[in-house]
Design a protein around this nucleic acid. Structure first.
Lengths: 251, 251
DNA sequence: ACTTGAGGCTGACGTTACGTTAGTCCTCAG
DNA sequence: CTGAGGACTAACGTAACGTCAGCCTCAAGT
């Protein structure tokens, strides 16, 4: 007569539990296997039979699973009513927050890379003139005028060529960083020589202005972003190598 | 004499590459196996030998891997220089953003649950008096006075008892929702009878005020939050069941 | 020439939470 | 009694390696 007793007598097959709870039969098998949710009893035919208690436990399991908790953690939680659920939730919350922070950083990185990639086709004049504008602050107007003059008659192809050469040098330098080569090494200095040659197509830096250009690469956020896409720390590495080059090779 | 040619003759063993790039030897084996990064050549002793080109490719691979991209996606990207990296990055970015949104939602859910768990010990008076305050707006001051009178001499244990009974009823009702039981079912109505009995320890609702209490459960955000922790939609289900109960059982 | 230690190689299992067959057995309605 | 529908176990597949285990190779020292 007691409705509760009638209620707890009720049994469910795997399929019924699966449909009621929305999980697959395989999941129930799995939870049985790992001991996360055992059926109320097993028939002598091997069938699993669940009761209301198991349904409630399953509901809890699914709640925690929905929070991306690992099954063994969930097992700890649902196994004992004395387990500190609040503590477990707080710990898990922390994990999620950190995950989120990491993901935010990744998205930022992607945005920077995208900006770089998308700027690349139109990077030619834009990049170079940006360069010139910044240079004005450092060595006065004359150099910039020279640069503008020298590039006056340039065709698209020539701009592309310059960009390709820059890209090659930057890539090769990234590799040298990876290899741990010091900036004084022959390989690196050879690359800087190429770099100097490219720069010289706009204007001719000297012992003072060439290292200053390197420092500008480090200081200007716009340049930094471009370099960091190749390799973190490339700007500093390049600047140091340029300084060395100027000391040894420039009058 | 050309530094580039000297550079590309240089070979590296797995250990060297591993140390230069920071990945494990096993990872290099794995990348070779799946064809993501093959060594430049293999010695007749079976040894893997890498060159600068592979190092650069590996650097790219690690960049994309650092963004949580799957290796087969990365393979598409690094395999062909014509592959639209920007598009791949944008797609991946979208995935990350959605992940982040989901995680935010999870954190919110955890916060709600924590609030519920932490309120529980002090839920006794707080909860009940909150209840009363809300009740004032609906049935005037007399009922509240009655409630306050009836609970005057209650001990802590009695408050705890009431809360336990509520919790049991809510849990059992959640189960009934899971089972798809209609609110008219005997099981559900039996539970509502218990609910009515518990409520009657504070005051005695009638055919009109009992369903109104149910509606309040739905309308008040404070109550809703408590019910939603048990089961989404529990507030509405309970309200409907209470209405039914009042119609059939209350004068 | 021989040994030894460091490094390289190939399996192959473990991890996570199930999905997906495949083959067999049980149950109940007609 | 038979067929349909459901239940069972066993075992592989997934992603990206970590971690042995067992055997091979190389360079250097004796």
């Amino acid at each position: 007569m007691n409705p509760m007793s009638a209620k707890s007598r009720k049994t469910y097959t795997v399929k019924q539990v699966a449909e009621l709870s929305g999980v697959s039969i395989r999941t129930l098998h799995h939870y049985d296997q790992i001991g996360l949710l055992k059926p109320a009893f097993t028939g002598e035919n091997g069938y699993r039979y669940y009761e209301n208690e198991q349904l409630l436990t399953l509901k809890q399991i699914l709640f925690y699973r929905g929070l991306d908790m690992k099954l063994d953690t969930i097992q700890q939680i649902v196994a004992s009513p004395h387990f500190d659920r609040a503590a477990a939730l707080r710990i898990h919350r922390e994990r999620l927050v950190q995950e989120n922070q990491r993901t935010d950083a990744l998205i930022q990185t992607i945005d920077q890379t995208l900006a770089h990639l998308e700027r690349e086709p139109s990077m030619k004049e834009h990049e170079l003139f940006e360069y010139e504008k910044q240079a004005i602050d450092r060595w006065g107007i004359e150099k910039v005028e020279i640069s503008r003059e020298r590039t006056k008659g340039w065709t698209q192809t020539e701009y592309d060529q310059v960009n390709r050469e820059y890209a090659e040098i930057h890539t090769a330098l990234s590799l040298q960083i990876l290899l741990g080569s010091p900036v004084e090494s022959n390989d690196v200095q050879a690359l800087i020589k190429k770099h100097y040659a490219v720069v010289s197509r706009f204007w001719t830096p000297d012992r003072n202005s060439y290292p200053a250009l390197g420092r500008m690469y480090c200081d200007s956020p716009d340049f930094r972003k471009v370099y960091d896409v190749y390799h973190p720390g490339l700007a500093e590495y390049l600047a140091k190598a340029m300084e060395r080059f100027a000391e040894c090779e420039l009058a």
